[in-house]
Design a protein around this nucleic acid. Sequence first.
DNA 1: CTGTTAGCGCTTTCAA
DNA 2: TTGAAAGCGCTAACAG
Lengths: 347, 347
Amino acid sequence: MKARPTIRDVAHAAGVSLGTASRALNRSGRVSEDAVAKVSKAARQLGYEPDAIAQSMRTRSTGVIGVLVSDFANPLYARILTSIETELQRAGYTLLLASTHNDSKREKALIDLFRRRRIDGLVLGPCESESPEFIERLSAELPLVALDRDFSPASTGIQVDHYHGALQATRHLLNLGHQRIALMTPGRELRPGRERIAGFTDAYRERGLQPDPKLIRAEKSAMEFAFSEALALLSGPLAPTAFVCLGTRILAGVLQSLRHSGRSVPEDASVISVGDADLAQLFNPAITALAWDLEAMGRVIVQLMLKRLDSKATPEPERIVITTQLILRDSCAPHTGVTRAARTSQA
Amino acid sequence: MKARPTIRDVAHAAGVSLGTASRALNRSGRVSEDAVAKVSKAARQLGYEPDAIAQSMRTRSTGVIGVLVSDFANPLYARILTSIETELQRAGYTLLLASTHNDSKREKALIDLFRRRRIDGLVLGPCESESPEFIERLSAELPLVALDRDFSPASTGIQVDHYHGALQATRHLLNLGHQRIALMTPGRELRPGRERIAGFTDAYRERGLQPDPKLIRAEKSAMEFAFSEALALLSGPLAPTAFVCLGTRILAGVLQSLRHSGRSVPEDASVISVGDADLAQLFNPAITALAWDLEAMGRVIVQLMLKRLDSKATPEPERIVITTQLILRDSCAPHTGVTRAARTSQA
DNA sequence: CTGTTAGCGCTTTCAA
DNA sequence: TTGAAAGCGCTAACAG
């Protein structure tokens, strides 16, 4: 592993001083065309590549944007992240990614790691985090864009309108005559979970009803949990007739539990899913889904970040809300009042 | 944004010299317990965090491992990457991730970017890349682990045994009496594609047959292409009776095209998929799938990398092969010789 | 055991 | 326009 050439070597080969070589390579300050020519030729010949670490050391900026989400393998995040990566690359920034796995200890450790690496900006996804003050303090230190976190007074961020999404989905099922609707969503401490529960509850309230709190399952997002929780609900005395599954893996778990208990969609249970993954589209019947524009989210996030990166003075906080849309497909049917047992014995 | 304390400030506050502070914080060399106590107390009080950039500058090592894959949102990669991230974090390294989108220009640009950032090691996924010499040259420069790329003489890496996977899948379908089997896999220039085509072809050869080259579709992995290509095949005069779909999104496209053309699985067409995603498991009928241990891949990759990182002398190249397994489910049926038209008119 | 000092590779003053 | 020199924050080599 031979030593790579430094700007010193380039300057020497070009017969100019260190400073001139630097100015020539960056076209900064006053440099003669002659110097630029000589230096870039020498650089090319030597295969010179500037050392980003040394540059960061001097300029106090790394060109790295950290992004922290609970799990970058989650297909919803994966698509947002792809969009973020593309936009950052276009703007000349590098993406540094990590997963917190909803562990606030880990989140804190990763934020510290990122800070020690002197990231230029941070995008922070939802996590069972400390107080909003934490965000506040952090955003005093570096440009911060919150992703589906609570907006704290001085913070900038982007939120999906989970409240109205859940409201709309629940209304849809109530309109179809369902009364016992199960809501399954990850963690009730996280903003998405809280908002969804609020929307769900308010849809009931609108008609003077109350949801059965037992049907609100908001503990974990892993499919295994969704599977066993749904199964438990289905085998209870007052089984739900509809499921709102607000998580890709949750949908999978619920569908599996329905199949496992011999129920079919939408005859025995109506289902609404989140996002618009392959599974929702291709399942037979196709699943009615709550969707929003993931690519746009990425673009907006980077836009907000770049604005904060470019301006020396911290610009006013901005909050962007992404609206959701209910895509009607074939997984929801009117509630007939006929139980599965009755239907089965009838046949 | 107030200036963060440096090790100088800590040394000053602790009443020791710069060097002692450094040694105390790193517990390196000879330091008194007293000094360690004073320095760590001062560090805690000041909220000192060592500057990773400056450390890298001095030590010539960043603790960053670059990983380059075609698309980190691909669920298969996503799971490998999660495993890699976990293992790297455990070992104290940071993951730097980027997608090449199968663009060799972009790959080269990203490798250069990574090098300029002085990554300590590189994991390189398949891409329409330059010659194996490229890898050779690269691995002379830094520890490199190839992920499902061709093994070049002096390189270290890990490969999935796509050849035997495709062989086994194709045999299974041939045993069921299928003759016109379509193989759909991403890019024939990439190792996975090439190996799969070879396995597919050899399964035919074993019984003195030749596959119809028109049924080998190896251009793109996007679902839209899989959808339209499968549809084109299905509407042709000699439609395939079975599909081997070696890509998550390809499976989605093929299933969609089958539904669109009014065919059902496995009566009208048998289907084998890759990986073990929700879609394959939950589709009705459940899809027979070619799977392998993605978490183990991540673990092995990091293991190979750490070995190269730790040892000063470059260790012998190592090549690990991951075997695949055909998980039999309900999407493959014997070929009856009855055409769909006949079945339909019969009913 | 500790303090002093010399850089890592680069950008950016400041004089010439 | 250019060269010389300072220094970003840290570690490591060397005297003491």
